[in-house]
Write a protein that binds this DNA or RNA. Structure first.
Lengths: 248, 248
DNA sequence: TTTTTTTTCTGACGTCTTGTCAAAAGTGAC
DNA sequence: GTCACTTTTGACAAGACGTCAGAAAAAAAA
């Protein structure tokens, strides 16, 4: 163990401040609104100092994305730790995604931004690996439940179906759906008033189609997700408080 | 009808040249690679002239997005026009999406780019409406098949399920899946070697879960999508030739 | 404490981009 | 040929990213 000098602590604190500050700017004004000069002014340092922390703007984005995926992973883990059968627990992960999108909308936005604007090209492979590793653990978390269901006989996959394929299906449906909800003006125009309900319903249809037992029962499901939502939101708020307190 | 003067024709041609040129630049280098100076140089005009056509960079993006969605709509319409039962025809739309992503990858990329970078804010409502209108027609195309299936009794929706909800489900799954395939390095890392197959399989599971008859049969389905793919690719190539020819 | 060494910070600067606009060039009617 | 109108031009202002030599601060040594 190595104790930090006051100076080093100040530096760390500043790095955190940069990221905390960048997130809302980015969420509100998009990539172009996030200017290095603006950050420097807010943080009360010279622009050059920011470049001591991050080699370029893209590195800041990537650092934010890592924090975002860590958040998501934490929610996933709490979801699958809930007591219930295998199908209940994947459903819980779906709810975790919804809560993530609702409570950390800037982060949700970030993840998608990274995906489509070529930022990876300009960033260090080091941090890229951190991100993909974290994303991988998210998927493995879900894959674990599916594998478990498969072992227990709740879910019988055809020989050509792999556990990972089901992960992709759920991921596409939930993430795709939430993304469309957040970014498609035409959704409302076409007459979809509650996208969330539709997404959940379609997830259940998919799982039913795979014959993941027990099959969908409306009231049972409603009761369960109510419970999950309450639990996860509690945890989110606890995490929030825990983070704001310590000055590190 | 009103005949165009040579000058006006030249102007129209230039506009088309701008868009044709912008697309590949954008696809390869991302939003930041697309510079007005670069376009002007390539087109052999002064930068100011570009601004006679488009008020800003975002307008160019939006114009490209419109062309992209028009392409997609055309493919959708050709897909549902194929002879087959209702379930076959939604499946055909799924294949249309795949072909779109494969044959017009820059356009596919564009649509997603528009979604996540705030470009709409800086563009004219006029063109925005064109885009959402076109996107809406895409969804209505799919909704039509679903409604038809529902009327024919192939698909029995619960009272709380709406046709549009099913559209959203399919859209999320296919578009989400294709997007993840194109942008997620961690997919391969997690052991998914054929994302397309997985997406198709999950779509079928979802439709089975909704009890859309006839239910999934592997060999029947394979034969059908082979047929669809062949037909649509033919049409794509025909369209391509038709476009290159006339100087307008 | 004072001096030396090392680390960190600074902000003007070079370069690139977007978008503007007055002046120049082009177009067509009479 | 002239005149009104449209289109094009490219220098220019504003602002952003990333750099780097020199200033300042911190740490180490004397």
């Amino acid at each position: 163990m190595h104790t930090l000098s006051p100076k080093q602590r100040a530096i760390r604190l500043r790095e955190r401040r940069i990221l905390d500050l960048a997130l809302p700017i980015l969420a509100s004004g998009g990539l172009s609104a996030l200017s290095m000069d603006a950050i420097a002014e807010q943080i009360q340092t010279a622009k050059g100092t920011i470049y001591n922390h991050f080699a370029n703007k893209e590195e800041i984005l990537l650092a934010l994305a890592v924090k975002a995926v860590e958040r998501r992973l934490s929610l996933f883990q709490q979801a699958i730790a809930m007591p219930g059968n295998s199908r209940d627990r994947v459903a819980a992960v779906g709810i975790a995604c919804e809560i993530y999108a609702d409570h950390f909308p800037e982060m949700f936005h970030m993840e998608n931004l990274i995906r489509h604007e070529n930022v990876l090209e300009k960033t260090s492979p080091r941090r890229q690996e951190v991100l993909t590793g974290c994303e991988g653990r998210c998927m493995l978390t879900v894959a674990g439940v599916i594998r478990e269901a498969s072992m227990a006989g709740d879910l019988q996959l055809e020989p050509d179906q792999k556990v990972e394929d089901v992960v992709l299906g759920l991921w596409s449906l939930v993430f795709g759906g939430l993304t469309l909800e957040a970014t498609s003006p035409s959704l409302a125009a076409i007459g979809i008033e509650d996208a969330r309900r539709a997404i959940r319903r379609n997830c259940n249809a998919m799982l039913d189609g795979l014959r993941w037992r027990p099959l969908y029962q409306a009231d049972r499901y409603q009761a369960w997700i109510g419970q999950v939502r309450k639990h996860l939101i509690q945890r989110v708020q606890a995490d929030r408080e825990r983070e704001n307190e310590p000055t590190l």
